[in-house]
């Protein structure tokens, strides 16, 4: 192990011609592809909406208060993951576990509320096949929920790995990269919420 290269920023100086750690460069490139993925979906949303014969008002058919709560839940989780990263830099493992645990818990709350929303739609016989509006609604929020699930798995793995890898040079970097991904998932929702519920 390159323990002599341990730095608090998670930067192994031997493998970074540009000075940016590999992981950081990698996660930003990955996020750029994610931007293209969701940008495509938003573009499709605009095309479907502008060409649709009828497009319901979001607040007439969807549950805005619940979605607002979910928005606040996700924003809070973005704050807690930053706290988890700060605690890692402070070398406070207990604090890290607390805030990472909170992040994961908030993500579960988000998914719980989303599941409740989906179920009430199904109870009223609104399915993806019902109309182009519901097709867009279920597909975009579903893909976002998939990203939340990936985030839960990623963060839980880091929460678990902290016991073994806490002192490794790369560990703070890993938290930072998971945090960047989590912020991205958060931002996608910040766009989805008004596009589907409020406009």
């Amino acid at each position: 192990m390159n323990t002599h290269a341990t730095t608090i920023s998670g930067h192994n100086p031997e493998f970074a011609t540009t000075g940016i750690p590999n992981g950081k460069l990698g996660i930003w490139l990955f996020l750029s592809s994610e931007v293209m993925l969701f940008a495509t979906l938003f573009t499709s949303y605009i095309v479907f909406r502008t060409s649709a014969a009828a497009w319901p008002r979001g607040w007439d058919v969807l549950n805005v208060p619940l979605a607002l709560v979910n928005t606040l839940v996700l924003i809070s989780s973005s704050v807690t993951i930053v706290m988890a990263y700060a605690k890692t830099l402070e070398r406070d493992q207990k604090g890290f576990r607390l805030f990472m645990g909170l992040t994961i818990a908030l993500a579960f709350v988000f998914l719980g509320i989303k599941t409740f929303e989906y179920r009430s739609k199904f109870e009223h016989h609104h399915y993806p096949s019902s109309s182009i509006f519901y097709a867009v609604y279920f597909t975009t929020t579903g893909l976002h929920a998939l990203h939340v699930i990936v985030g839960i798995i990623w963060n839980s793995w880091l929460w678990h790995a902290a016991a073994k890898e806490w002192d490794e040079w790369w560990f703070p970097g890993r938290i930072e990269y998971a945090g960047l991904y989590w912020h991205f998932v958060d931002i996608v929702w910040i766009f989805l919420f008004p596009a589907l519920y409020l406009l």
Binding site: S33, E34, M36, L37, F38, A39, T40, L41, S44, Y127, P128, S129, I132, A135, F138, T139, L143
Partner: peptide, 18 residues
Amino acid sequence: PPLQAAAILQFMDRVAGT
């Protein structure tokens, strides 16, 4: 990624009836 998104939409059309 745009083809990925497009393929997901086509997949939904075939599987979920969108």
